[in-house]
Amino acid sequence: MSAVLELTDVTRVHGEGPAAVQALRAVSFRAHAGELVAVMGPSGSGKSTLLTLAGGLDRPTDGRVVVEGVELGALGNDERARMRRTSIGYVFQGFNLIPALTAAENVALSRELDGVAARTARAEARRVLEEVGIGDLADRFPDDMSGGQQQRVAIARAVVGERRLILADEPTGALDTETGEEILRLLRARCDAGAAGVLVTHEARHAAWADRVVFLRDGRVVDETGAESVDLLTEPAAR
């Protein structure tokens, strides 16, 4: 398996002198193709910092962040922005859709900014909306959609253009249990189809959808659970 995302000894210090805060301390972390990794920890443990660094929205004080073989720290601002548009997809708790654009336009936007012809980008957007189960809502505006539907649009936006790294920050936080589970199912399906996913959450039930769970405390990785089954129980034999 190849690592789509690789953080090596990453430290992030905010501020200077006595007021300096170590948000991450020498964290090494990987997410491979086909893998969903959950990051759990209390507020202030550094999980959101880890995600913003992985997504190239911030630079580490020390250490390396590599996405698909490209070290983000070595890129200029424009190149980094391009990388964010083409390789990395974000899903936020608050959906962050543009209210004045339809679902399809929201999904197509980053592709259009990247120089893809509008017609092609919109067609792509419709196809991905179809894949996440809301093809019929492509021309709706976010305000006319439920929270679960908006989050599906956000997932479509995160994966359009075959982006291989999906970063999700509490994506189910604003949704009810069942809708949240549908969103996790979608995220899981994208990873099963070959993307690498990082899911930041404080809910164990959601983290359990991941192949690996990494625990952060005070900016450090303190533990990690692997994917191998312990055969605690088996499914009913009679079906």
């Binding site: 994917a227 312990v230 605690l232």
Partner: peptide, 8 residues
Amino acid sequence: MHALQDYT
């Protein structure tokens, strides 16, 4: 957590 992953 490991058990929870199995159940899930």
